[in-house]
Design a protein around this nucleic acid. Sequence first.
RNA 1: GUGGGUGUGCCGGAGUGGUCAAACGGGACGGACUCAAGAUCCGUUAGCUUAUGCUUUCCUAGGUUCGAAUCCUAGCAUCCACACCA
Length: 997
Amino acid sequence: MAEFNFSKIEKKWQKRWNDEETFYVSEDPKKKKFYSLEMFPYPSGSGLHMGHALNYTIGDIIARYKIMQGYNVLHPIGFDALGLPAENAAIKEGTHPQDYTKNSIKNFVIQQKRLGLTYDWGRVVDTSNPDYYRWDQWIFLKMLESGLAYQKESLVNWCPECKTVLANEQVVDGKCWRHEKTSVESKYLKQWFFKLTNYADELLDNLDNMNWPETTKSMQKHWIGKSYGTEIDFEVETQTSKVVVVHGGNAEKDKDYNKHWMPWLKSELAKKNIDSKFPQMPVDSKATYEEWRKIFDKIKIDKNSILVGHSRGAAFLVRWLGETKTKIKKLILVAPCKFARVDYKKTFYDFDINSLVKDSVGEVIIFSSDNDENYILKSVEEYHNTLGGKVLELNGRGHFLIDKFPELLSEILAGEKWPVFTTRPDTIYGVTFVVISPYHRELKRLVTSDHKKEVEGFLKKLKSISEKDLADLEKEGAFTGSYAINPVNGEKVPIYMGNFVIADYGSGMVMAVPAHDKRDYEFAKKYGIPIKIVIDPVDFELNDGNLTEAYTGEGTLINSGRFNGIENEKAKEEITNFLKEQGSGKKSVQFRLKDWGISRQRYWGTPIPVVHCERCGVVPVSYEDLPVKLPKNVSFGEGNPLLTNDKWINVKCPKCDGKAKRETDTMDTFVNSSWYFLRYTDPHNNKEIFDKEKASYWCPPDIYIGGAEHACMHLIYSRYYVKFLRDLGLIRFDEPAVRLFHQGMLHGEGGDKMSKSKGNVVNPLDTISKYGADSLRLFLVSVASPDKDFDWSEKGIQGSFRLIKRIYDFFVKTKPGRTSKELELKMNNSIKYFGERIENFDYRKVTIALRELFEELSKEKEVGKKVLEDFLKLLSPFCPHIAEELWEKLGNSSFISTSKWPEFKEGELNQKAGVNLNSQVINYVLPIMRKLEGRGDKVSKVHLYFLPFEIGDLDKKRFEKELGKEVFIYSVQDNNKYDPQGRAKKAKPGMPGIWFE
RNA sequence: GUGGGUGUGCCGGAGUGGUCAAACGGGACGGACUCAAGAUCCGUUAGCUUAUGCUUUCCUAGGUUCGAAUCCUAGCAUCCACACCA
């Protein structure tokens, strides 16, 4: 017997596939396409692991099956080559990330080729190649143009180990996802973001119609976390350190401008002990902004200041705030001017309203009057459009040259409105305190001097606690000293800082209803805050009229003023409406999903293509200048290596040619992996991101295979990209993959995770050397359904190896002859079964069926050539090398890999069934009847309900003879059948529904 | 806490109302071959028994049904994900 030298066989066929480019494809509109996509790997130095092998095998089997079915199959691979580990290796081993990555990829390719995969090696995508990441930068610029990319100071997760910012998704239990022992810190940094939230609704709504695993969809739903509720404004009294009023003055005659309502206001403020300043500005028409500033800059302004500006003074304040970015509490513009009649426009009004003022000012209020000058009314509109805030129209006041101005005074004295988000507006009468997040940006403004120490002490304590412990921390906080007014009843409630409130969900502040919320209850108990029941706790145990825990159920409102007696669900709506009418609340939708922070302070990523100009600010790099290549010459250590290459950093501004510096943040690598599958369709295009026609021929991928750990991050980002590229008009579909499949986790022998430290890592290459790629492939899909976790088993792979060897031996010794009828039938059924199971990734069952089929086959003394060939074809997707070899041994010169999948013959299955139907039915019905009679039930008539196609084969007389009863036969479809007990619906092939009468 | 899953013989794991004492693989045991081991092949693997029937089994307890591993209800166990989202 010939020796089974699998190693030689596999090398032979891998070489032939490679040399003849068997699996290279191109678009062919005449052919049906199939796109089988596997998640591309991060090329780590340690090479391919078993999880990769499983992932690729799953994709390869369906790809091979589809090829044999005559599809034009795109089955590509690439490398997610940018990322932290390469950089860490650079730091540790003194290599350069680029060299490290290149070597890793080389190594990966060699290993991948030994698995016998049908990859089109002409389409390899490498994200660390500037030819690839220039298109990442291109997309970034498009995002910027569309207003989807923006910069924001924001609270980020900072890993002190990586010296970089982590996405929420990259924080695991408060630890860095790469450094399991390093606690993530919170820190404010200016970051680039993509507006993921713009597509939040579509990301959520599409899920319902997607053929993705339910678990993944539900995880994404939860991740997006849409909740409906009400936003309610609570008036908060914050301290006002100072009121500064800047007068207007636009002509010589207005020299005494600092009169009208200003003296009146000054005395009113003095009465209330509020510090105020009314600086006198130069008012001649030639006076410049700079001259005004000289005077104004002498005044100390802080975050608790209120600035009031009239007319030209208003313009001055807006310009000043835009330039200095000073944070203040409130900005009040009275009849502000922007469009000047006279020619000193250049000296004073030549500025753009900086929209950032909106963020540095707590509240913007504009006073306007209908009978003011037209250019002022136009100005009001202009300011309001950019700064937002509220416009108060007071009719008949002209340009506000009036003696008293009580409306202004009350706005100065009015508390600020701080919104809270709640899903329980029905409980608003039960609010006994308000809680703000310790990380809220405006927290300090609420803390009064007598509570400063307490709050700061608590913040310090909070920092020292790792986030992991934070999760199961007791609810704790501190009183800020400030109070908020409940808009429904005017009650004054204390504002606490609390560790259980998340800064970037809702408004970072919540109304607390201890009687009806678990967290609020705990907090209130701890700090002795009153608990007010506003929903009648039905069937709830009270202790002395007090709750023993929060009542979160349904009920009727009590202690809720005019809303008493209303069911709480209904009250949600009514109270929201009431608040809306009152102007202190509205319906609101909140998402858990946040915008995607893409900034990384790291080297080995895609450079963000913008420069920071001293004069023009942030300026995008122009499209012609892409790619912004990563400089090779940098030094690695702590922090961002890009900061060490001055030559790269210092550039000219594309806009003004002045001095500018490159952005040194690079993009999150999830950016690279969000669209790579589109690039596969046109990987060498240097003119555009990809050819639209090519992309629309192949995409979307028909199946996408990868680990479930990507259910949220990668798969949400990728869905977002597809929607964005669609809206750019580049593609015409909505979701990145028609079907999604998650392979299971492969554990080491004994069930532990494979890890170096446990020493239970099984290397795919070792296994291939020992048992061959065919054995490995077969084992990987036969040990469990590919979407379930399973353990590596040395015995298991030996079992697979044995089967392959037996098949080989059988084919070597068997000479083609005739085929028995039974085998022919079995083969025919197998063809159908294999195909159906493969389509459903039920590979495990196929391998079982394969064993059974081979069992039948090997029992035969002789077998026809057709059946032998068909068997090899069925084997081929799983064990392609041995299939090719034996196929050749049968005298074929072409590849079995590209041969046609055998055809299933429809008739034969039913034919056999028909012959036996009558006796089958009798054997089925008789014992049931006997049993009934044995119990003493009397049976006189037997009604049988058959599937329509069975009716023709039935022998009623034979039934009556063998059953000894009167027999009635019906088709289940027959509307006139006699079926008082509804048994017809129980009918199955060969097993009619039965009713004994 | 929320959402999702799972619970089958020594083990992994099929099985969605009757053909189920339950596929397939592994292990174990017995046999053939061999000086022997390995490989290969055959058989056994709930119990009583050796008939072809009975008894007990598919997490537990109920229920539906002529009939349940399969459907329903409750409970228990276990795994995964998210986790103080207002």
